[in-house]
C-alpha cells in the first residue's frame, strides 16, 4: 500500500487511545484497500497519488476521524453553559471596567503615564485570566455535580415556590438575572480585594499603597456583609423574583453598608504608604490616594442610600 496511506494511518494512530490503536488502524486500512481496489477495477489501472489522496479525503482528516472514536466529552454541558457564559462575561466586564478606571487614573496622574497604564493593563489581563479560569473550573464542577446527582432533572415547582427557608411569600416583581450576575461579580471582586487575595496595582504611582490599621474595625463587618450579600445574590440567582422578606433583607443590608461607608468616610488615614519605590513626592501621592478613597466612599454611600430608598418604596407600594 502507498506511503500516502501509511502516513495517513500513522497520523491517525498517534491520536487514538493505545488499546484500540492497532485494531482501528487495521480496519481502516482494510476499508481504504477495498475502496482503492474498487476504483482501480473500474478504471483498469493503478490509482495516481492524486486519486489516492481523494480517497483519503473521503475518510476525513485524521484528527476528526480519531475524535469520533473517542467518547463524547465536554467540560461544561449545554444545560449549564448559558449561565456559565453569562457569568464569565459579567466577571470579565467588571474586571475590564475596574481595570479601565485604574488605567485611566494612571494615564492622568503617573509620572510615566504610558508605562504606568501598560503595567495596569498587564496586571488586569492576568487578573482576568485567573478569574476566567476560576469561573470555568467552578462551572465544570457544577456541571459534573449536576450530571452525578441530576439535581436539575429533579426540579420541583412546589419546592421552588417555597421562598427562602420554607417561608412562603408572594413574588413582588422579577429580578433581571443580568443585575444579579453583575452584583455577584462586583461583590466577589470586593471580597477578594478585602481579604488581600487580590492586590490592585499602585506601583505606577511611584509608591506601594496599602490600607492602614485604621481600617481594622471595618474588617469583619465588611467580610460578613460580603458573604451575606453573596448568599443573598445566590438566592436571587436561583429564584429571580422579589418577595417582601428578601426586599426587607436587601434594605437592611444596604442600611448597614451605608452606615459603614459613612463611618469609613469620617475615619482619617485609611490608606498609607507601604513602600516608596521611586516617588519624589510621596506625601502628594498619599493625599491623592486618600482623596480618591473619600470620593469612592461618598459614591458608594450614595449608591447604598439609593438602593435602600428604592427598596423602601417597593415595600410601601406593596
Amino acid at each position: 500500500m502507498s506511503t500516502l496511506v501509511d502516513h495517513y494511518l500513522l497520523q491517525l494512530k498517534s491520536l487514538l487511545p493505545a488499546k484500540q490503536r492497532d485494531d482501528i488502524a487495521a480496519e481502516l486500512r482494510e476499508s481504504i484497500s477495498s475502496a482503492v481496489e474498487e476504483r482501480e477495477r473500474a478504471q483498469g489501472r493503478a490509482l495516481t497519488d492524486a486519486e489516492l489522496n481523494e480517497v483519503l479525503r473521503g475518510f476525513g482528516h485524521p484528527m476528526v476521524v480519531a475524535g469520533r472514536y473517542l467518547p463524547m466529552q465536554q467540560l461544561i454541558g449545554p444545560d449549564v453553559f448559558p449561565l456559565y457564559w453569562y457569568v464569565l462575561q459579567a466577571v470579565l466586564i467588571v474586571i475590564a471596567v475596574v481595570g479601565g478606571l485604574f488605567a485611566g487614573v494612571a494615564l492622568l496622574t503617573a509620572p510615566r503615564a504610558m508605562q504606568a497604564a501598560l503595567q495596569v493593563a498587564v496586571h488586569f489581563w492576568w487578573l482576568a485570566l485567573q478569574a476566567a479560569a476560576l469561573v470555568t473550573l467552578a462551572f465544570a464542577v457544577l456541571d459534573h455535580t449536576k450530571a452525578r446527582f441530576s439535581f436539575l432533572d429533579n426540579f420541583d415547582a412546589a419546592k421552588a415556590n417555597a421562598g427562602i427557608l420554607g417561608v412562603r411569600a408572594a413574588p413582588l416583581s422579577a429580578i433581571a438575572r443580568s443585575d444579579t450576575v453583575f452584583e455577584i461579580a462586583t461583590t466577589a471582586l470586593l471580597l477578594a480585594w478585602w481579604v488581600e487575595w487580590l492586590v490592585f496595582p499602585s506601583e505606577w504611582l511611584g509608591v506601594v499603597l496599602r490600607l492602614s490599621p485604621a481600617i481594622e474595625p471595618f474588617f469583619y463587618p465588611v467580610l460578613v456583609l460580603c458573604v451575606v450579600e453573596l448568599l443573598r445574590l445566590g438566592v436571587d440567582l436561583v429564584r429571580p423574583y422579589r418577595t417582601v422578606p428578601r426586599v426587607a433583607l436587601r434594605l437592611a443590608l444596604n442600611l448597614v453598608w451605608l452606615a459603614l461607608f459613612v463611618l469609613a468616610f469620617r475615619t482619617p488615614g485609611l490608606v498609607e504608604i507601604a513602600e516608596n519605590v521611586r516617588s519624589e513626592n510621596p506625601e502628594r501621592v498619599l493625599r491623592i490616594a486618600q482623596s480618591s478613597m473619600k470620593v469612592t466612599l461618598a459614591v458608594l454611600s450614595l449608591i447604598s442610600a439609593g438602593l435602600a430608598a428604592t427598596d423602601l418604596v417597593r415595600l410601601f407600594r406593596r
Partner: peptide, 9 residues
C-alpha cells in the same frame, strides 16, 4: 454515509 462517521459509529 462517510467512512469517518460509519466506523466510529
Amino acid at each position: 454515509i462517510d467512512e469517518g462517521t460509519l466506523y466510529p459509529l
